[in-house]
Structures are given as C-alpha cells and as structure tokens.
C-alpha cells in the first residue's frame, strides 16, 4: 500500500474536522478498506481512525424503534436481543454475510459503505469507471457473473455486495449523517446508495467530509421476516441474489409486503410497486409471478449474468411462499 498518515479521532466533532482534510478517509473495522488499500484501489492520504469516538451503542428510541450506532459491530447488532426479537431480518442478513471474524470487526457505518466486489474494480490493471473515471468498464464485455441486472448504466454494472443494507432497506431504516461543520442530516436508507448512471464512482450520497453516525429503525411491524441469500457455496460468498422480506397476512390476504433485493443492482433494490402488487391479494404462484414481472420489468442481463433474472423470479416465489404459507 502507499504510505499514509494516521490520525485518531477522539470524538465525533474531532472526526469531522479530521475527515475534512484532503483525501482523508475514515477507518473503523477496516475489513474492506485495508484490502483495497493493499491493492491500491483506495489510496487515501490520511486514515482517520474513528474507533474511539463512541457511537457504538444500540438503544431503544422514543418512537419504539431502535438506534444502531455507526460503530456497533455487525456481530453486536446481529446478537442484540431487540434485533433478534423485533428485526430478525436484520440479524439474519448480517449473519448471512462474510465470516464470524469479519463480522466481529465490521461496523454499521463501514458496512453501509462497503464497495463492490466487481473483479475489474479490484484490479488496477483493468479498466473501471468506478475506480478510474473514464477508463471504461471491463465487466460489460467481460466476466459479469456477479453483476447487476437492474438499474445499470453503460458506465457500470457493478453490484452493491452487502447483506445488512438489504435488510435495512426492507425495514425502511434511516441513515444519520453529520458533516465536518457539525451539520446533521438524515437520509432514508433506500436513498442512501445510488445507481451508477454517469457517476459510477459515487456509491452513495455521502459528501466529502460527511460521516455516518448511526442508523435508526422504525418501530417494529407485524409479520414474517425472512432473509434469503442465494449463493454457490453456503458461506463466505456474495449473493447471486438475496431478498429481505417482511410480509404480514390479514386472513388469507397479504396485508404488507416490504421487499428489498441484493445482488441485483448497484444498490439494495427496493421497488414499492412490487409490494403494491401483492398487498390485498391472495398469495399464489400467479400473484408471485406478477410481482416478479414488476420487479424485473426493466431487467437486463449482460450474458454471463442473464441467469439472475429467472433466479430472482424463482427466489422471490420461494420467499413469498415461505412467508405466506402458499403451496407452490
């Protein structure tokens, strides 16, 4: 890796000041950043160590929801009694990701900022518009097995690789952000990550100098929560397709269907129309197919990842069948 300066932040305001410096990057668990620095995909001038600034708390919030600090580790979040009781989709999503060792280090804020696993992004001898704007996209005509089928652009077909954020999207969580000047703002997690468009180097809406302070979950809702991750091997693999689902039944009809999808796009994919198709209807194969039609209406494969389109359809059917008890 390239030589860099190391600064330890003593509090959130201090972190904000340090992070405002030219080419400064915050480091918490470092589970993704350090790998990318070794590869020189990331070449920060300054690492701001935020591990001592607090914000690792997981607390009940006044509205009955839950606050998860940016520095709470993935493990602490996944095993938290309220997460397990009220937001099991989040616990399951976290536990479906990485390995125990990585989850012990990875944090809420860092995990939200996890970068893509695109083979071309992580190889500096290859073109990548995300890493090196204007150099081209190696994946579009290359190895695109892991890549997106929704919301792609001619600049980038990378996927957001994480699991936690997919569950947060289904839960309609809110990301809390602060800037160097102490200015706070919130962003719905569904709007936190971006589509690549013409600026694929921007993974999310964080501006330079901004830091995530935590994530708030709304008060829990009724219903069945499922996280389904499809992958080649049963652990330590990124999703070919994943679904976070919160589905509530009212008699024999679906009363609520909050769904988010991983492995399909540059962001956790949430399309409210998918839920709208389902709500108020009796579950069954035809309905699930209709929901998949809506989800995949603009899907586009790039050869190697064409399979993700039928795979997403079938996985959605499996999840909805499990959630509603429908026989398929």
């Amino acid at each position: 890796m390239r030589p860099f300066d190391y600064q330890r932040a003593e509090g959130i305001d201090h972190a904000g000041q340090l992070i405002a410096a030219e080419n400064a990057v915050a480091i918490a668990g470092g589970t993704n950043l350090l790998d990318l620095m070794k590869l020189q995909v990331e070449t920060p001038q300054t690492l701001v160590d935020v591990n001592r600034i607090g914000h690792a708390e997981i607390e009940d919030s006044d509205d009955g929801g839950l606050w998860i600090g940016a520095l709470a580790t993935n493990t602490d979040t996944a095993v938290h009694p309220r997460v397990k009781a009220d937001y099991p989709v989040l616990a399951r999503a976290i536990l479906a990701g990485a390995t125990q060792q990585l989850r012990n280090r990875a944090t809420t804020g860092g995990n939200l900022c996890q970068r893509t696993r695109c083979y071309y992004f992580t190889n500096i001898d290859q073109p990548c518009n995300k890493r090196d704007p204007g150099s081209g996209c190696g994946a579009i005509d290359g190895i695109a097995r892991l890549h997106a089928v929704l919301g792609t652009s001619d600049q980038c077909i990378a996927t957001y690789p994480g699991d936690m954020a997919v569950a947060l999207s289904a839960l309609d969580a809110t990301v809390h952000i602060t800037s160097a000047h102490g200015k706070a703002r919130t962003v719905p997690v569904r709007d936190f990550h971006r589509l690549p468009g013409h600026t694929p180097w921007k993974d999310n809406v964080l501006e330079p100098g901004e830091l995530i302070t935590g994530v708030s979950l709304p008060a829990p809702v009724e219903g069945t929560q499922i996280y389904r991750k499809v992958r080649e091997r049963s652990s330590y693999a990124f999703a070919l397709c994943s679904i976070a689902a919160i589905v509530e039944m009212d008699g024999d009809k679906i009363a609520r269907a909050d769904l988010a999808f991983g492995g399909l796009a540059h962001k956790p994919w949430h399309d409210p129309e998918v839920g709208e198709v389902l709500v108020g209807q009796k579950p069954g194969a035809k309905l699930f197919d209709k929901a998949a039609d809506v989800l995949l209406r603009d899907a586009r494969g790039y050869g190697e990842n064409d399979f993700k389109i039928p795979l997403a359809r079938r996985t959605l059917a499996a999840v909805l069948a499990e959630a509603t008890g429908a026989e398929l």
Binding site: Y119, G138, D141, G142, R233, Y236, A237, F238
Partner: peptide, 21 residues
C-alpha cells in the same frame, strides 16, 4: 474465470475463487 478480452484471471482471491468452506 478468464476475461475474454485479455485472458487475465478475474477471480484471483479466495473470496471469489470458491473452494468449499
């Protein structure tokens, strides 16, 4: 997984070359 354009190996670490866990 070999790139069709220049023949380089795309999945060149243990996260992406999938030996059984």
């Amino acid at each position: 997984l070999f790139d069709p354009v220049d023949g380089h190996l795309a999945n060149c670490d243990l996260a992406e070359y999938h030996v059984p866990v």
